[in-house]
């Protein structure tokens, strides 16, 4: 296993806490969620003006990358964003990340779950290749369950075929 059991339990606990908070978007003015993350790691996002904050990570570095139809291959643009993510994670060792994989609605439910997992894994592998310890990363797929854009045209589908890197607290924080 790549993950220490302890870390998994902790992360799972954090994610569970996030899921149980239906108002997580409603509170905290100044919180940004440009990537459409479903879980938020259960932590304070901080200010986008603070380069050390998860909010800055999401808004300025970019917490999400997009994919072509049915694909989990990273585009050059995606690699560039992920390089920035890796750099930020490298200089903020107190944080971990959960990588969410998502699919557009044009597919069956089970397949989209598997496809989202492929996308999340592509991101994880790239971050690891850029020096982020795999012990700090965990993947999850939401399939087509959490679209970011809700129209039923390619304009929205292209935004929904995404992987979102959600910052969470690391061990001992």
């Amino acid at each position: 296993m790549k993950f220490a059991t302890k870390a998994v339990i902790l992360l799972a606990g954090l994610a569970l806490a996030a899921c149980n908070n239906p108002d997580k978007y409603a509170s905290g003015a100044g919180v940004v969620d440009p990537g459409g993350a479903y879980g938020d790691g259960g932590i304070s996002q901080g200010s986008i003006n603070d380069p050390n904050s998860p909010a800055y990570f999401a808004a300025t570095i970019g917490d999400k990358v997009l994919f072509a139809v049915d694909q989990s291959t990273l585009t050059p643009e995606a690699r560039s964003i992920l390089a920035g993510q890796a750099q930020w994670l490298g200089s903020h060792p107190a944080y971990n990340a959960i990588i969410e994989g998502h699919a557009d609605e044009q597919g069956t439910r089970e397949y989209n779950l598997a496809l989202g997992a492929r996308r999340a894994n592509s991101v994880q592998e790239y971050l690891v290749s850029q020096g982020v310890s795999s012990a700090r990363l965990r993947t999850v797929s939401y399939g087509k369950e959490r679209p970011l854009a809700v129209c039923s045209t390619e304009d929205c589908y292209s935004k929904n075929r995404r992987a979102v890197t959600v910052i969470s607290m690391g061990l001992g924080s």
Binding site: E110, L113, A114, A117, A120, V140, S141
Partner: peptide, 24 residues
């Protein structure tokens, strides 16, 4: 991740998808 479960006809086992490292 585990998903897409279904019982065997005799109810004794479960077939399902397991995702590990991006592969299902």
């Amino acid at each position: 991740m585990t998903f897409a479960p279904r019982f065997s006809p005799d109810g004794a086992s479960i077939v399902y998808s397991l995702e590990q490292g991006g592969n299902t």
